[in-house]
Computed example of a mutant assay.
Amino acid sequence: MMELRHLRYFVAVAEEGNLTRAAEKLCIAQPPLTRQIKQLEEMVGVPLFIRKPRGLELTDGGAYFLVHAKQILDKVMVTIEGTQQIAKKRKTLFSIGFVPSVFYGQLPLMVRRLRKNKNLEIVLHELKTQEQIEALKTGKIDIGFGRLRIDDPDVEQELLFEEPLLAAIPSGHELGTHSPSLKELSEFPMITFPTGPGAHFSDFIQGVFYNRGLKSNVSQQVNDLQTALSLVASEMGYTLVPEQVHKLRREGIEYVKLQDTSITTQVLASRRRGDNANAVMRLVNTILEELVENRRTGRYS
């Protein structure tokens, strides 16, 4: 019968690509580890590794198995941590993932509303949209708020609203005297965020220019919004941000509307598919509906 130790051993070997190093990492001898991996392959019924003189490589089946083995181990850890949290505080744990640019609008209002429920323990995780999808599948978060469409059969995404893009520019810059066009902006150094593997907001921004036959002049790529704004304040260039970000007042920065007001970015809520039945999620959905309606009718922008 497959046990969690089989998965832990497999992940360690897959990550190290070497039985000796994996055994050292796991603090066990190599021969027992070799037997456990062989036993796992027999249980799965397919080879998970290709044995080579300098180490091990995952087969296609092994690569697939690794993704799901990690998810299972993460799910177990999240379950343990959640159980401990509930036992200590006797509260229902509800975890929210978010990208920073959505936290300058109505999301804090929702969090404050939820925290008034004394039976809830609210935990926040700053995660990129792709990271939110994985966190939903492992149970690390219960809902995520991001800006990118991610196609995954286990997750459903709801469009809450769209908001215009603004240009964050250095104070006193010539771009601040009017609403600039994308063509004008393409002639100035641009700072994009975030970077790294997978889909990002920076990819969306690049697409905004590309779809209009333009090429942006990217001078810097940084990991987060705050760093991007710091570089803008240092007169290193400009960056494009969602409208909500203008609530973040920074010395040395002005926010200006674009000439093309039809350029918008989405705000999406991501949930596990079919996970709308429990009482907490129903409460979250009710609050979200109210906040979105407030924005639509102009009571909140």
Rank of each mutant, 00 (worst) to 15 (best):
N119K: 14
N119H: 14
N119V: 08
L120H: 03
L120M: 08
E121H: 14
E121W: 10
E121S: 15
I122R: 01
I122M: 08
V123I: 14
V123C: 09
V123T: 14
L124Q: 08
L124G: 05
H125W: 11
H125F: 14
E126G: 10
E126F: 02
E126V: 10
L127E: 01
L127D: 00
K128F: 09
K128V: 09
K128C: 04
T129K: 00
T129I: 05
Q130G: 11
Q130I: 11
E131I: 02
I133H: 00
I133R: 00
I133T: 06
E134Q: 13
L136D: 01
L136S: 01
L136E: 02
K137G: 02
T138Q: 00
G139N: 08
K140T: 11
K140S: 10
I141N: 02
I141L: 07
I141D: 00
I141A: 04
I141C: 05
D142Y: 04
D142G: 12
D142N: 15
F145W: 02
F145M: 03
F145E: 01
G146H: 02
G146T: 07
R147K: 12
R147V: 13
L148I: 13
R149L: 13
R149P: 05
R149T: 12
I150L: 12
I150C: 08
I150R: 06
I150N: 08
I150F: 12
D151V: 14
D151L: 13
D151A: 14
D152R: 09
D152Q: 10
D152I: 09
P153N: 14
P153W: 07
P153H: 12
D154K: 12
D154N: 13
V155R: 05
V155H: 06
V155S: 05
V155G: 08
E156L: 06
E156Y: 07
E156W: 06
E156R: 10
Q157E: 14
Q157I: 11
E158D: 12
E158Q: 14
L160C: 07
L160A: 05
F161A: 07
F161R: 04
E163S: 12
E163H: 07
E163N: 05
E163D: 07
P164V: 07
P164E: 12
P164H: 08
P164K: 13
L165M: 15
L166C: 07
L166K: 10
A167I: 04
A167D: 01
A167W: 00
A167S: 07
A167H: 00
A168R: 04
A168D: 06
A168K: 03
I169D: 00
I169M: 00
I169W: 00
P170T: 05
P170V: 06
P170A: 05
S171T: 15
S171L: 13
G172S: 08
G172C: 09
H173F: 04
H173C: 11
